[in-house]
Simulated assay, not measured.
Amino acid sequence: MSVFDQIARPADGHAWITGGSAGIGRAVTLRLVDRGWTVHVTARDPEALEALAAERPGRIIPRPGDVTDRARMAEIVEQIEAEAPLALVLLNAGVYKPMKAQEFDAAVARLMFDVNLGGVANGLDPVLKAMIARGKGHVALTASVAGYGGLPEACAYSATKAGLIAMAESLALDLVELGVRISVVNPGFVETEATKVNDFEMPFLMQPGEAADRIVAGLERPGFEIVFPRRFAWFLRALNALPNRWKFKAWKKMGA
C-alpha cells in the first residue's frame, strides 16, 4: 500500500493545526473534533484560542504562538508529543496582502514570505523529525490555486503558494519511502478576513465551513492534492498552460 493511501485516525494520536483561531483553520478544527480528534491549535491570539477551546471543552488544546518563531514551533511539537503522537498536522497559517506592481512594497512581500513560507518551514522541521522517527504520520500544507501561476494583485502571495506546492512535491519524493504522508491543500477563494480586502469579483467564493468540509474529506481519502472548487482549478490550470502572451491578454480581457 502506498503511503498516500494511509489515512490518519484519532486512535493514532493527536492533531495540530496552525492558523486555527479563525477562517479555514477554525472550521477544520471543529470538524476534526467532531470526528473524534483531540486538536491542538496554534495562533497568535490567546483569547481567540481560548474562545475556540470553550466550544469543545477538553478536545481543543490552545497552543498560542507565532509561526515565525521557530523555537516556539519546536516547543509546541515537543509539548504535544509528550502527551500523544502527532498523527495529523495541518500547517495552515498564512497572510494575504493584495499588491499591484505600482504599489510593490518589499516589507509587505517579506511579511508574506516569512509567514506563508517560513512559518510552514518552522512547523515542518519538528513535525517531520517526529513523524520520520516513528515512520508514520500525515502532514498537510495549506497552499492555494494562486500557486498555479501569478494572479492579479497577488505577486508575493502567489509566489509563496507556488513555493509551498513545490515544497510539498519535493518532500513527497522522500517521504513516500519513509512512511510519512504529505498533502498539499489548494483552495480557491474562501470568504475570510483576508479576502474581504479584495476589490474584484471572486469566482466560486466559498464559506469557511464548506472549505473545511472539503479539506477534511480530502484528509480522509487517499491522494496528494486536495483542491477545490475543481472548476476554478481546471480553469486556472488551462489558463496557465497557454503561451504567456495569450495568458496575459486573457487576464487583461477579464479586467485584471
Rank of each mutant, 00 (worst) to 15 (best):
Q207S: 12
V89L: 03
R56F: 07
T18R: 01
L32I: 07
R26S: 11
T42Q: 09
E191C: 01
W246N: 01
M99C: 10
P203G: 10
K247I: 00
I80E: 00
E191V: 01
H14D: 15
A211V: 09
G36H: 01
E193V: 10
V33L: 07
P222V: 14
P208T: 02
A74E: 11
Q102A: 12
G209F: 04
Q102E: 13
S183H: 13
G123T: 00
I76L: 02
N240E: 15
V120A: 06
R72V: 13
T68A: 06
Q6D: 12
A146Y: 04
R181P: 01
L205E: 07
L30A: 15
P62Q: 09
V41E: 09
V28S: 11
I215W: 15
G19M: 05
I76H: 01
L49S: 06
V127T: 09
V33P: 14
A212I: 12
A87T: 05
A8I: 00
F232I: 02
L236E: 08
C155L: 12
V108S: 06
D34P: 10
T18M: 10
P152G: 01
V176I: 11
M202G: 00
A93G: 10
F248L: 15
G163D: 04
G149Y: 02
F113C: 05
A11R: 11
G23R: 03
V216M: 08
G58N: 06
A8G: 06
L86E: 04
K247E: 15
N198F: 11
A140N: 00
L117H: 03
G135C: 10
A8N: 05
L175C: 01
L88Q: 08
F235G: 02
R70V: 09
V139F: 00
L49M: 06
E177A: 10
W246P: 03
R44N: 03
R44F: 08
R230S: 13
V184T: 06
D174G: 08
A93H: 02
V41N: 06
G58R: 00
N122R: 02
P62I: 07
V41M: 03
G65C: 04
R72T: 11
R70A: 14
M167T: 12
A53M: 05
L117G: 00
N92R: 11
A71V: 15
G150H: 05
A101D: 10
A212H: 07
R9K: 11
L32D: 03
E191S: 15
V120K: 00
K249I: 02
V3E: 14
